[in-house]
Simulated scan of single mutants.
Amino acid sequence: MSWPAERRDDTARPTPRRVSPAMPQDEREPAQPWVVWRQDDNGNRFEVRRCATREQAETLAAEFEARGHKQLYWVAERT
């Protein structure tokens, strides 16, 4: 089955960035130590997004919870 033209939007997906092991850490992806997690009705857990600050992560989790879905969202620091 093919999606209608208005549903096919490949530009919405981020392009993976290649990182060389020799590249200095400060030139790699910025540190994003806070993670928004989601747990569905079956107990499956998924990483939703990484954020630079706890405040950003908490705001995002609150936005998802406000949508009224049954999923559980929480914020945790990456280890």
Rank of each mutant, 00 (worst) to 15 (best):
M1Y: 13
M1N: 09
M1C: 06
S2M: 08
S2K: 13
P4G: 15
P4Q: 09
A5W: 02
A5G: 09
E6P: 00
R7C: 12
R8G: 00
T11W: 01
T11C: 01
T11I: 00
P14C: 04
P14H: 01
T15D: 08
T15K: 09
T15L: 08
T15F: 06
P16A: 05
R17S: 05
V19A: 01
V19T: 05
S20K: 09
P21G: 03
M23W: 09
P24E: 00
D26I: 00
D26L: 02
D26V: 01
P30L: 10
P30H: 09
A31N: 03
A31R: 04
A31T: 05
W34F: 15
W37K: 01
W37Q: 06
R38Q: 10
R38S: 10
Q39M: 15
D40R: 03
D41T: 10
N42V: 11
G43R: 07
N44F: 13
F46T: 12
E47R: 10
E47C: 12
E47K: 10
V48C: 08
V48K: 04
R49V: 13
R50T: 11
C51F: 07
A52C: 10
T53Y: 00
T53P: 01
R54S: 12
E55T: 10
E55D: 09
Q56I: 04
A57L: 01
T59K: 09
L60R: 10
L60E: 05
A61K: 02
A61G: 07
A62K: 13
E63Q: 12
E63T: 05
E63G: 04
E65N: 11
E65W: 07
E65K: 12
E65F: 09
A66F: 06
R67F: 07
R67S: 13
G68A: 05
H69Y: 13
H69E: 10
K70W: 07
Q71M: 04
L72G: 04
Y73T: 03
Y73S: 08
Y73Q: 08
W74P: 03
A76D: 14
A76Y: 11
R78G: 03
R78K: 12
T79R: 07
T79P: 14
T79G: 10
T79V: 11
